[in-house]
Design a protein around this nucleic acid. Structure first.
Length: 441
RNA sequence: CGGGGUGUAGCGCAGCCUGGUAGCGCAUCUGCUUUGGGAGCAGAGGGCCGGCGGUUCGAAUCCGUCCACCCCGACCA
């Protein structure tokens, strides 16, 4: 992509309303624009990142055996009356009336809809287990939206649902999602710690929040320091091996890690040695839980079992805040100059900077590299603007692409370009061909 | 939902107390000079001073009211 043809309105100053670093950087890097409190337009750069995150989530859900689908944003109120949540949900739910004066709502979540689908089409245990997910916009009319897209009213969320005949298979589904989450966040370069969370009226130990540690986080968290440098790496087993999957879950849940609502100081001190006790704040990026028959019972989602008797299905739901992750990743990965994207979610892999547009040699070398990167299938953003060198370099640091290839008259005269790693700050001069070989690999 | 605060050019702000021709920096446009870390000089464009009502000869400024947004707390993916 040529910067001259790319809509990237970066700012030197920080808009006043932005308090936390991810919000500031997203505004400065031209990723989002606020439309209203907690509601944002996603500009091209921000949209690209969100799509990358969404795709990783999608791939891992598919790998874990879930089927992607899409449910609507606008839902009929009647379904929510059936589950009893229409009155319970309160003002957080955005209620709408259509032209026929029917009560509708902009969905804050999708349990009712999925349960409706299940009760319509799933009549026999032979149709189970059900493994469905979608990635869709939700709306919760938060009293006080804040921190940019971190706590918006409108947000993009992946929510998956499991439908099973009994508790054991439901637990297996839960475990698979648990492992899929470990892998998903790991691919984004995040350390997301699974923490025991409040499971609501169902009880039990089948509810975990995945938390990335950050001072700006909204949840107070307590965990064993051993979690701070755990490595998911090789611990993802074959999903079909139920025992191995359970083993991974056991491994990651045996150490103490709880959010404040489940935290128990006495247990914490008893189980975790003094020096390993970590107290801090975190951002919730995922939440999985088993809720049994909470919705299937009132909505009448039943199947005929192998014994010929009807049974109410067991369900679980598994959420990931996709739009929130964009901000979460920035909170976890930035410096004074700007964002530092992990390569897996970076909007472009390379920022190719022509320091002196109009200089025949610089133009030639830059254009040649640009064409070759494209040919190699590399995502590259070429700064072909007439800005000054300082402005270009500062702009590149701000938007945080993993690699910068800088073509300037000084280097070109010596037959070299500069390759800079955004994260380490390391710069290396090499021939253009060498840069191509290094980065197109 | 309680408490606090802010609305003036695209962005950041001054002016308001003490009413009298709407300003500064950045950005934008033109020209020249510059070209390896957010350039310099010269010029130009850009405003219903959040909305409505009031006081006054006269309101960005004083009064009332509504709206929007932000911050702190309580609540949430």
């Amino acid at each position: 992509m040529r910067l001259s043809r790319y809509f990237l309105p970066t700012l030197k100053d920080t808009p006043r309303e932005a308090e936390v670093v991810s919000h500031r950087l997203m505004l400065r890097a031209g990723m989002i624009q606020q439309a209203s409190a907690g509601i944002y337009s996603w500009l091209p750069l921000g949209f690209r990142v969100m799509k990358k995150i969404e795709q990783i989530v999608r791939e891992e859900q598919d790998a874990a055996g879930w089927n992607e689908m899409l449910m609507p944003t606008i839902q009929p109120a009647d379904l929510w009356r059936e589950s009893g949540r229409y009155d319970d949900y309160g003002k957080e739910m955005l209620r709408i009336t259509d032209r026929h004066d029917r009560d509708m709502l902009y969905g804050p979540t999708n349990e009712e809809l999925i349960t409706d689908i299940v009760r319509t089409h799933v009549r026999s245990y032979r149709n189970l287990p059900g493994r469905l997910y979608h990635i869709q916009w939700k709306f919760r009319d938060e009293v006080r939206p804040r921190f940019g897209v971190m706590r918006g009213r409108e947000f993009l969320m992946k929510d998956a649902y499991s439908i099973d005949l009994d508790f054991d298979t439901a637990r297996a589904a839960y475990n698979r999602q648990f492992v899929a989450y470990l892998k998903t966040f790991d691919r984004m370069g995040l350390k997301a710690i699974p923490m025991a969370a409040d499971s609501g009226p169902i009880g039990g130990d089948m509810s975990h929040e995945f938390i990335i540690l950050a001072d700006t986080g909204e949840s107070e968290v307590f965990c064993d320091r051993d979690f701070l440098d755990f490595d998911v790496g090789g611990s993802v087993p074959d999903y079909e091996d139920t025992g191995a999957v359970e083993g991974v879950v056991d491994y990651f849940t045996k150490l103490y890690a709880r959010t404040d609502e489940k935290h128990d100081e006495a247990t914490f001190e008893a189980e975790v040695p003094d020096i390993r006790r970590y107290r801090g704040r975190g951002i919730e990026v995922g939440h999985i839980f088993y809720f049994g028959t909470k919705y299937s019972e009132p909505l009448g989602a039943r199947v005929t079992g192998p014994d010929g008797k009807e049974a109410v299905v067991h369900m679980g739901s598994y959420g990931i805040g996709v739009s929130r992750l964009v901000a979460g990743i920035i909170e976890a990965s930035h410096d004074d100059a700007g964002i530092i994207w992990p390569e897996s979610v970076a909007p472009f892999k390379i920022g190719l900077v022509n320091l002196k547009v109009g200089d025949a040699d610089c133009d030639r070398v830059t254009e040649d590299l640009y064409a070759k990167f494209l040919q190699a299938g590399i995502e590259v953003l070429m700064d072909d603007s007439a800005e000054r060198p300082g402005a270009k370099l500062a702009g590149m640091d701000l938007i945080g692409l993993p690699w910068q290839v800088v073509v300037g008259p000084r280097g070109v005269a010596n037959g070299v370009v500069e390759v800079k790693n955004r994260k380490s700050g390391e710069r290396e001069e090499m021939a253009a061909e060498a840069a191509l070989a290094k980065l197109a690999a």
